[in-house]
Simulated assay, not measured.
Amino acid sequence: MVQIAPITESLPAFLASHSFSQVAVLVDEQTLQHCYPRIQALLPPHTLIQIRSGESEKHLETATQIWEGLTKAAFDRHGLLINLGGGVIGDMGGFCAATYKRGIAFIQIPSTLLSQVDASVGGKLGIDFQGLKNHIGVFQIPDAVLIDADFLATLPPRELRSGFAEVIKHCLIADAAKWEELRQQSWETQNWTDLIAHSVAIKERVTQADPTEKGLRKILNFGHTLGHAIETYFLEEPEKRLLHGEAIAAGMLTEAFLSRQRGWLTEEQFATIQSYLLQTYGKAQIPTDAFEAIVELTAQDKKNRGKEVRFSLLEGIGSCRFDIPVSNSEMQEALTYYAGL
C-alpha cells in the first residue's frame, strides 16, 4: 500500500488498523532532527534506533547495529519497524526487518524525493558489500509506504535535485508526454506532489507486473548500470563523492548515448536528453584513468547473465528495452564521449 497524504492522517490510520506488539523507529541524525518531531506524538511508546546517515554507512556493521537494537528491545515477530528517512534508511531498515527473526512488519516513511519516487516503492531492500552497491539484499514489499511531500522542505537543494534524476528516468522509460512537459521547466520549479504521484504510479505498475525483476522491472534500471558503477567508484573518494541522482544523471546520459549508437534514439531525441541533464546536473568530473575501473565494476551488476553485462536502453523516449548486452569497448566509448562534453 502506497499512500500519498499528510503523515498526520496516514500514520495514525495505519496504526489504528493493526495491532503490533511493539514499535521501533529507525532514524539517522538528520531525520532525528528534522522529521522525527513530526511523527513522535503520533506513535505509541516505542524504541528509537539511530544510525549515521549516508551511503557510506549502508553496510553489514550498521545492519548489525539495527538488529542489536531490535534484540535489546526484545522485539518479537509481531513488532513493527518504521523506517523514517531516505533511500539508505529504507533499503537497510527494510532489509533488517525482512531478516530479523525471518521477518517482521515494516513501513517506509520516505523523507527525500529520491526515496519517495523510487527507493521506497517496490520492495527492493539491501546493503552495500565490499564497496558494491546493494550487493546483499532481498525483495520484500513493505506493509505500507506513507508519503508526505511536506518532508521535502527539510532537504538541502542538492539532495532535492538528486532525487529528481529518478523522476526524469521514469519519464524517459515510460511517458514521453510527461518528459516533454518536464523539460520545459527547471528542476526548481517542478510540481513535486504531481511528480511524486506520477513516478509512484509508474513504479507500482512495473513492479506489480514483475515483483522480482525477472523481466520488465529491469527497465527501472535505465541509467543505473554505468550510473551505479560511477557512484561506486567515487564512494572511495569522499571529497569527490557523488549523490545517487548525480551519478544516475551521468549514467542516463552515457546510456542514452549507447541507445543512440544502436539507432534507437534519434539525434534530436538524444540532444534533448543531453541538454536537459547537463543543464540540471552539469557534468561529473570523471578522469579518463577511472574508465577501466568503472567498466570493471559493471561486471557486478545484478542484471548480468554469465559474463555478459546487460543494460536497459531507451527505444525512443517513453519506451525501454532490457537485457541488452553491451561490450567493454562500447562502455569505454560512452564514457569517453561523456568526458569530452
Rank of each mutant, 00 (worst) to 15 (best):
M1D: 13
A5D: 12
E9D: 14
L11N: 07
A13G: 09
L15S: 11
A16F: 11
H18T: 09
H18M: 06
F20D: 10
Q22P: 02
A24I: 09
L26Q: 08
L26W: 10
D28G: 09
E29F: 14
Q30S: 15
L32S: 11
Y36I: 03
Y36N: 03
R38C: 04
I39Y: 09
P44D: 05
S56V: 13
E57Q: 15
L60D: 10
E68A: 13
T71C: 11
H78R: 15
G79Q: 03
L80W: 02
L81S: 07
N83S: 03
I89L: 04
D91V: 03
G93D: 07
G93E: 01
G94D: 00
F95W: 00
C96L: 01
A98Y: 00
K101H: 11
K101S: 10
A105K: 11
P110M: 00
L113H: 01
D128T: 10
L132D: 08
H135Y: 15
I136A: 07
Q140I: 08
D143K: 15
A144I: 09
I147K: 06
F151L: 04
L152N: 15
A153C: 14
P157W: 13
R158L: 10
A165W: 03
A174K: 12
D175V: 09
A176W: 08
L182T: 09
L182R: 09
Q184R: 14
S186C: 10
T189V: 12
N191D: 15
S199A: 14
I202Y: 02
E204I: 05
E204G: 05
R205M: 10
V206Q: 01
V206C: 03
P211E: 10
K214P: 13
N221Y: 05
L226I: 04
H228M: 13
E231M: 04
T232M: 08
F234N: 13
L235V: 01
L243N: 11
A249V: 04
A250W: 02
S259Y: 02
E268M: 10
Q269M: 12
Q274P: 06
Y276A: 06
Y276H: 08
L277P: 05
L278D: 06
Q279D: 15
K283E: 12
A284Q: 13
A290I: 12
A293T: 14
A293M: 09
I294M: 12
V295G: 09
T298K: 08
A299N: 07
Q300T: 13
D301E: 02
K303Q: 14
G306V: 12
G306K: 07
F322Q: 00
I324L: 04
I324M: 03
P325M: 09
M331D: 00
A334M: 06
L335A: 13
A339Q: 15
